[in-house]
Amino acid sequence: MSSTGKTTPDAATPPPLETLGLVVAYEDDPPLLENLSFRAEAGEILGILGPSGCGKSSLLRRLVGLEIPRAGEVKLFGEEIFASPAALARARQKFGIMYQSGALFGDLNLLANVSLPLVEFSSMPPAAIEASATLKLDLVGLRGFERHLPSAISGGMRKRAAIARALALEPKLMFLDEPSAGLDPITAGDLDELIVTLARNLEITFVVITHELRSIHRIVDRAILLDRGARGIAAEGTPQFLALESPSPAAKAFFLRDA
């Protein structure tokens, strides 16, 4: 961390995201993931990788508190989110999330979509909220589209607008679910660039769920690879390490499948 302000004493600051012995399971089925412990350090882009069906999205739903894990803890900035309803409510203001489909509100234009969290949780005056929401749209390259409805823009633009909405309260932690899925290589590349820019300029920690190899190599600092057989983390490290040096057969299968 470059900032040396007294509010961020590095040693004592808990990581933005930490899980301890997390068990991800549905109903009475055998668990998808067991005893999962990992952390995302401040300012890094952590990739959660794995083939379809390995439990990436199920894991995400527990990390953001949409579903309660069967066992284990999820800590955001050091606070266990399932400790109490109040803790969960507090946790929800500490992160932003971009869903795979964008999940923009279809009846609201882009400006209103991005303003919504500010209108709900901030007491800033309307002029400041509008200026701030416009700024977020500008950051993701959507200036001039403030009054467009989500249905009137392309899929890539919707994902960028969803990132702008996730940025509304300027959380220091963002979850992205499959940011480049369903996009053409150029749009996906632009989106990757945007993510890296945001991470570096605004010092945001990103947790990115993805299985797009190109995107992984472009943006991810460190990754954990989930595997169905292992029911947990099969391998961990930088994308280069996972692709070239990791002894894990799951990593070889994942990174070399189309080589």
Binding site: G5, K6, T7, L118, S122, M124, P125, A127, A128, A131, S132, L135, K136, L169, E170, L202
Partner: peptide, 18 residues
């Protein structure tokens, strides 16, 4: 100011205008 984010800066700037 110990910390200021984009929302805060925008807030101060629009305040000056108003």
């Amino acid at each position: 100011l110990a910390s200021l984010d984009l929302n805060g800066a925008t807030y101060l700037l629009t305040l000056r205008e108003s």
